[in-house]
Amino acid sequence: MLQIKDLDASIGGTEILRGLSLDVSAGEVHAIMGPNGSGKSTLAQVIAGHSDYEVTSGTVTFKGEDLLELEPEERAREGIFLGFQYPVEIPGVNNAILLREAVNAKRRHQGLDDVDAFEFLKLAREKMAVLGMDPQFLNRGVNEGFSGGEKKRNEILQMAMLEPSLAILDETDSGLDIDALRAVAEGINALRSPDRAIILVTHYQRVLDYVEPDHVHVLSDGRIARSGDKTLALELEDKGYDWVREAASA
């Protein structure tokens, strides 16, 4: 589904990703771990198409298409979803309206009619119940005055409504208490399916207790230093990131 080859990317002239390669197939869950500054968030932003990041070399293909040629909204309509590490507040814009616009943008892209307003609300309420969200959140401004946990749940709600083929969740688990973490993990697990892939960008092993990954990669200095199965995450928890760094430079 997603092939990244020898990707170099920089921000403001500073090189962050240096020759990163990654293959993600449908049905898989990949966890990307690594210390601060290793390039995890940059990878997520580059896949989503943030214009602050410049791709200097390498290729990214998504469902066989050159992803780097597409605008961010086109990538989204093609099925790429990024759960933001710090979801931005958009005061005054109704959460339900943004969500419905997003759903409709994708439907129009697929040649479908706009979603029926009643159906949309019904579906949104169902998904919110699963995530333990008060339906009142639909009537509030997008992320306006939401707590950290509420923002993350809202990201998962959007993901659930948009049903992406590739979901990248950038530290969605950070700053969550145990109840919120469980709810978010449940939301992610509900989305797991054979025709969908998920990339979990995380700092901690904790979330992997709830969402079991098929592959774990450790990022160091802008490239994947080590890959393995879920046991790699446990080993990492035990030995710390210095272990990877030493192994990589050795």
Binding site: A48, G49, H50, S51, E71, P72, E73, R75, A76, R77, F81, L82, F84, P87, V88, I90, P91, G92, V93, N94, I97, L98, E101, A102, A105, K106, H109, G141, Q158, L162
Partner: peptide
């Protein structure tokens, strides 16, 4: 950041501005 957020949800930049302005 607001615009990128909306675009990442599939909403074009122009529509995003309209959403924000109307809000």
């Amino acid at each position: 950041n607001q615009l990128f957020y909306c675009r990442q949800r599939g909403i074009s930049e122009e529509d995003a501005v309209n959403l924000i302005v109307n809000g």
